[in-house]
Nucleic acid binder design. Structure first.
Lengths: 358, 358
DNA sequence: ATTTAGCACTCAACCGCAAAGAGTGCTAAA
DNA sequence: TTTAGCACTCTTTGCGGTTGAGTGCTAAAT
């Protein structure tokens, strides 16, 4: 036995590649003759048939039934993605589209990701996915209180990842604006950078003593802060362009598609998948049963984490049939993530100088 | 011609009702014999056939093909909803479910609505929808600035509907905490309760002069505020349980279902529909082509606005096949909306007294 | 005048079967 | 080792017949 890729002769690789390309495009089993045409090889279809038989025995191809052409197996796709894929260059039009849409969205991370998932869907004709993972260790790095009236105020929290969340709070006793300000100040002194499980009774008591006569507000506020922390840490999955999938015959089985929809809505599986797989910051490609989510065994999921300062803030991805146009998808996600990471560095630039058009 | 409901004899009503009920349950055309059984009438199937022929002529029924049973027409459903429907009483279990899930969600309106749409879907076995309409006249009632570091701060805005939004702002010049505070204060003095089109140049100039030496920050901040206003006013449609629809054979046509999915994602049509139809605060029932959205012509949309102080803050609804279990859906939405409106009155209660468990 | 029984008719759905077509595996020659 | 040729397999498609549910109509009964 030779090295890993050495297992396959050049001709076998050529044939496998041709089969994968043809099947990605057409979706149907591909026969020996069509390969001859597509790959322009100078041998006969019989030779190709022999090679195909061997490729099948090695596990790279499958035959839906005895008299059909061949279809790439999961292993076949995996080998294709790892070794055979050719770099796809985005058209200037596609690049322009990314720039136009993302530059316009100088918003918060979740908005950028959401826009990116729409773009991913539009550019690839598959389903786009935007993920904000559960980090497991979210903290609040800044509190702020907004006084509305004596019985209402808003508690605003900025998380360690930069996300901003707020909660309305209604009190049955009158509160002064100064109290709300004090509360924010005290919270900033005591709770900043603490994970939920480190907000213990002694800390809460300290907080109460610092609030002095207004300590009755502390208990309920703590409850709200727990809520905030758990919301900040609960992860988020946004999906764009599910309808795209229905154009592919592999999703014409309604019951199977229904199950997939359900998994996308439940979002737990997807979150687990992304959290588990890729802390590398690199593109992940999960083909079929590689994904461990049963209903996705006939699909492929490609995603790329969005990293800032070594911290994974989210991920964007594409979900589609196993016979996905991997070249295009990989290029699109690279392009998108590059843009996004630029964007979140220089969020909402303000030039020193001209305030109006410049 | 007699009065509107006088057009139909008691027996015709009874038959129509039986047909609608049977068709809602089974989804298939219903024949004269099964009506006899279901409605327990003391006449023969021939009589019913005669009545059905007349009902068809009047437009209440339709016949898919010559030798099939009858199916209610849109007019038939409409009459059923308006005059024949029987009040459906929710089971205590259902009520408990609503209470458990909504009470736990003492969050912001969008979270409550989102939870409600999930409940609506789970309780009815159709697709649940949560809508926050474009109001057309959103204003900001309070600004707040959160200083992060000399080149970053966050602008928080509380809208007239109570929604809180925030934007990170990055400056290329150093900024002091006091400047951010001053900015918030000045914004509160000048821009509060102004719609986007009333933020005119003179006002902006006033703002700049009030900011004095720090006026260079004003232009960019105005841009952000425009963004905030347009985001606050752009409406929101959340969908829960689309997969539910696939259990109904009317959605087995993949292409049609795909179009419906597309419309749900685009969200414009739904927003328009809800904005246009119901400012009454009452439940709206749109059956088939009543909805003016083409891809929904084989569906029914039922929704109820959520009103607080005479202002429509949002709506929850249910989307399903035309043969929807209207009785159940209406009861569910009533129950949900009642709970929600209670909830947003008494948002995040804080009892005067005990801070911990009571 | 209304209701009912009876009957002929219609039409989708189902089944089996044959023909077509695509693609293979195998064999024997190059 | 490659290739041409051929038999074989298996899906897909189309067609004719049958089935069965349900109707509309007619003529008798109430």
């Amino acid at each position: 036995m030779a090295g890993k890729t050495g297992e396959l002769s050049e001709r076998k690789k050529q044939i496998l590649k041709a089969i994968v390309n043809a099947h990605i495009e057409g979706g149907e089993p591909v026969g020996s003759k069509s390969i001859l045409q597509a790959a322009g090889m100078n041998c006969s279809s019989a030779t190709i048939r022999n090679e195909m038989a061997e490729l099948e025995e090695m596990g790279y191809l499958e035959q839906p039934h005895a008299s059909a052409g061949r279809v790439p197996s999961e292993l076949g796709y995996r080998f294709y993605v790892d070794s055979l894929i050719e770099h796809y260059a985005m058209t200037t039009q596609e690049i322009a589209q990314i720039n136009a849409l993302l530059r316009a969205k100088m918003g918060e991370l979740d908005q950028i990701l959401s826009a990116a998932s729409h773009l991913a869907s539009a550019l690839t004709n598959y389903t786009g996915i935007a993920i904000q993972p559960r980090s497991g260790s979210v903290t609040i790095s800044k509190f702020e209180g907004i006084f509305l009236d004596p019985s209402h105020f808003i508690l605003v929290a900025v998380s360690s990842t930069g996300t901003v969340k707020s909660k309305h709070i209604h009190t049955e006793f009158a509160l002064e604006e100064a109290t709300v300000e004090k509360l924010a100040q005290v919270l900033n002194e005591t709770l900043v950078h603490l994970t939920a499980d480190r907000i213990t009774l002694p800390i809460i008591m300290d907080l109460e003593s610092r609030m002095g006569t207004e300590s009755r507000i502390v208990g309920p506020v703590i409850k709200v802060i727990y809520d905030l922390l758990s919301e900040l840490d609960s992860g988020e999955v946004r999906v764009a362009g599910i309808d795209q999938l229905l154009q592919y015959p592999e999703y014409s089985d309604t019951q199977q598609f229904r199950a997939l929809l359900g998994a996308l809505e439940k979002k737990d599986d997807i979150l687990d998948l992304v959290s588990a797989s890729g802390n590398e910051g690199d593109i992940n490609v999960l083909i079929g049963s590689e994904s461990s989510v049963k209903v996705m065994n006939n699909s492929a999921l490609v995603f790329k984490p969005i990293v800032k300062n070594g911290q994974t803030l989210g991920a964007i991805g594409v979900l589609g049939p196993r016979r996905m146009d991997y070249a295009r998808v990989l290029a699109t996600l690279e392009g998108l993530s590059g843009n996004i990471e630029n964007l979140i560095q220089t969020n909402q630039q303000i030039k020193d100088g001209g305030t109006n058009d410049g």
